[in-house]
Design a protein around this nucleic acid. Sequence first.
DNA 1: ATTTCAAAAAAGTGATCACAAAATGAACGT
DNA 2: ACGTTCATTTTGTGATCACTTTTTTGAAAT
Lengths: 238, 238
Amino acid sequence: MAERETLKLPELPRQPRMTSQEYAYARLRHSLMIGAIAPGRAITIRGLVEALEVSPTPVREALRRLSSEHAVTVLENRRIMVPEMNGRRFEELVALRCTLECHAAERALPYISEPLIDDLSRIDARIDEALNVPDHETSVLLNQRFHTGIYSAHPEQIVMPMVESLWLQLGPFQRIAANYVGDYYRVDRHQEILKALRNRDPIALTMAVEADIRDGVGRLGREAMRRILGSEPSHDAA
Amino acid sequence: MAERETLKLPELPRQPRMTSQEYAYARLRHSLMIGAIAPGRAITIRGLVEALEVSPTPVREALRRLSSEHAVTVLENRRIMVPEMNGRRFEELVALRCTLECHAAERALPYISEPLIDDLSRIDARIDEALNVPDHETSVLLNQRFHTGIYSAHPEQIVMPMVESLWLQLGPFQRIAANYVGDYYRVDRHQEILKALRNRDPIALTMAVEADIRDGVGRLGREAMRRILGSEPSHDAA
DNA sequence: ATTTCAAAAAAGTGATCACAAAATGAACGT
DNA sequence: ACGTTCATTTTGTGATCACTTTTTTGAAAT
């Protein structure tokens, strides 16, 4: 049996007025979002204390926040882990992403300005670059900035945190999927989204957003799931 | 100016294996859900320490969880409060409830059993009783059990926590609204929902769920908002 | 070889205290 | 009367430690 591997988290600059708790939260959240922590991975408070170089108190508060966003799961025995992924949960997450993001896009549409569309167009170009490298972390983060840019045009934001919770839950598995299948396998419908935005066409917009999600993460994840389950049919993706 | 009023929270039995943090969370959550803490109300850790009779550490962890569910807001100066309500936010919350709960209901429909429908029917009868008393707390909690019963029939639950977050955010204002307008003012479309469930009719189901929300909380809240803003047009509902 | 059980180790929990940040309010000057 | 300044008070933050629960380990027994 292997000795306990110490958790290694991607670094993240600590902003000036940031509390230790906020720093711990931000760095953990970022790690999960880009898939630096694998599904099924056990998390210990003392382990994070060492990895993040802060005391247990802020670590625990950060973990409570992440547990409420379902980025980590608190088990019955109080142990904490990154949730496992499986086919049914994945389909449920993708379906909910479609529903929520279509809702968000449609309601944001009246607030979308021309300069914003230009910004989004520039982000999309950078996404294509990142997908060609391929640079998983950059493509994921830019893709999120693209979607966030649209939804958060709406001034009263209720839905955005829920969308981010879904991204957090998909993050760890999406990295696994990209490792199996390749990030270039992914396609996006960002051009269709941009066109719908320019035309102020809510129907075309929601169709494009749904297609983007289903043909993007959805297709990637399903293909990865198929290959993983094909090779080791005994357990879930992890 | 009034002296500092100590926060009085409805009691809640502490389950055997419950940690202090879980107890603090459960009791705070329950208080917010039934509107025992008003929108705009300032929350202090030391105040909760006194009210809940636990030490600061578990109180802070409970507050972090609730902040991630947007049941409380952490301000820039680190103070914590129950968010204020206003017309735009209210409409956004109701719209998102419709979208999310229609999604949840539709996906749960294949898993709805006849005995479950009978259970729901009995809950609905008790809701009518509570609305006639009127007993705000009971009617709210039973109404949630009715909806939860439907949505959580689906075995893979992603959407339910998000729905509960919306209920939490509406809870404090809903109590205010019921005080202004009267709980009996509320109507529900639970009979239509039950009929759609029995007929396994997804279209009728989503229409009934949407109508239930819009004609229920939606109508109550809008009417209350109108009266509150009508009498004191200077500030938000609180 | 497998099971059982007690001891040890590891991990989560919560109380406390010192410190830092923010709000309060009185004294002061304009 | 109004705003400014500064001491006081209140509040949030984080480190530490003692305690409890859970897991692991290894020896003894079957």
